[in-house]
Amino acid sequence: MSLPRAAYDPRRVCVIPFPIVPFMRHKRAIGVYAAGALFAMAQWLFLDAAILSAHARPPPDAPYDEVPVHVTFVDWVPGICSTLGMLVVNLINRERLMGEGGGLSLGGWGEGGVVWRARLFLFLGFALMAGGLAGSVTILVLKYIIPEWPDKYEYYGVANVAQNVCIMLSAVVLWLGQNTQGEYEYRLAL
């Protein structure tokens, strides 16, 4: 008596295996495209708020009132921080990051080692992105929610938070997309 041959990968995690998507071969390209789209969407969300603020007029029934709040340079700072952080995270060489050191004289965890420096820069990049997100929430609360402007003006702050969330998502998607080994796994699955 013999058991039927297993048709699945014995290293599987789930009882029901994930279906192999036919366009898995283009996984990397799709990830990068999605990251670019998210990044552009983030910037345009904020630019929308900025352009809306630049064209804001007082209501027609009170034409001599001043528009109470505008998008100023303070609102630009979190987005600039997030974008810089994304740049830093993606400029790091992945192989340096994964190395456990010991073999090469320069590698390893020693003071000034390559892996140590790569992880320091990775930390700096993520800190810049998280700082941008935190800064955008701070601006939303301090500049737009606490003074209780009408909803029309709170949109500026909400757009700022959405921009930073989208930039972070874009960095994550880009990271995941570039770390897949599409073609190799695909060939194995065949």
Binding site: V32, Y33, A37, A40
Partner: peptide, 11 residues
Amino acid sequence: GHFMTACIVVT
């Protein structure tokens, strides 16, 4: 190239 293409299309 892919990243910039997606950016331009969304723009």
